[in-house]
């Protein structure tokens, strides 16, 4: 399993892995917002956490279509399914998700504090947004894996994944943004939505890979 994690991580980091694409997209979204919204610093600070979250959400959906498609095209997916007796397929999917998150989504979380400066967010707000992103983005990848497994056989499944997955990640977005707001706006609580966000991630860490494994098993042809 460690071998699979390391292999996928290497693939993501090396040329053609697309790890940088997400960060560049994220950067493009966040940098464009102040130009569109105007130089109202208070407004920017207020919408900052939400914009960071939406940007990170869309950016992390970008590379999801390659999660299984690359393995399917070169035949690796057959062998991963064939080895299901040794390594439970859901666990294989889980490890692939972790590797994808480390290579493609973790850079977004690391870039988020820097991009928060563009939105005139307070240091506390930036910290809270980064923390909620760190905890919440794995959930996006886990649901995304199910979407990627369903569309694995489609040549241009990327957009379809986004359409399939977006409604399912709305709760993650809501609780992530609520927690990020709760940290800076005084009467709003931080801990309850943050805990629900953690719970969502853990819940989806089980459901997502299981669903993806079922889809992959019936999708081999």
């Amino acid at each position: 399993m460690l071998a699979l994690y390391l292999r996928d991580l290497r693939m993501g980091v090396r040329a053609g892995g697309g790890a940088l694409t997400g960060v560049l997209f994220f950067l493009a979204v966040i940098v464009t917002i102040p130009f569109g919204v105007g130089p109202d610093l208070n407004l920017l600070a207020r919408i900052g956490p939400a914009i960071l979250w939406i940007g990170a959400l869309l950016a992390s959906l970008l590379g999801l279509d390659r999660l299984f498609q690359a393995d399917r095209e070169d035949g690796s997916l057959d062998l991963l399914v064939l080895n299901a007796d040794r390594h439970m397929l859901a666990l294989t999917v889980f490890v692939k998700c972790l590797a994808h998150w480390t290579a493609s989504v973790l850079p977004l979380v690391i870039a988020a504090p820097l991009l928060g400066l563009f939105m005139n967010m307070s240091p506390l707000g930036i910290g809270a947004a980064a923390l909620t992103l760190l905890v919440g983005t794995p959930a996006i990848v886990f649901i995304g894996a199910a979407g990627a497994a369903v569309t694995v056989a489609l040549p241009r499944g990327g957009l379809l994944i986004s359409v399939l997955v977006l409604p399912l990640v709305i709760p993650v977005l809501i609780f992530g943004v609520t927690a990020a707001y709760g940290a800076v706006n005084d009467p709003d609580p931080f801990t309850p939505p943050f805990m629900i966000l953690c719970a969502l991630t853990m819940f989806l860490a089980v459901i997502g890979p299981l669903a993806a494994a079922v889809a992959l098993r019936s999708g081999t042809d």
Partner: peptide
């Protein structure tokens, strides 16, 4: 199968090492 199940971006050594570790 028809496909070789190897990654073009990784070296032959890395590819085989992965399958050796994964397959047991």
């Amino acid at each position: 199968g028809h496909q070789n199940a190897m990654k073009a971006a990784l070296t032959v050594q890395e590819n085989l090492q992965f399958w050796r570790d994964f397959s047991g």
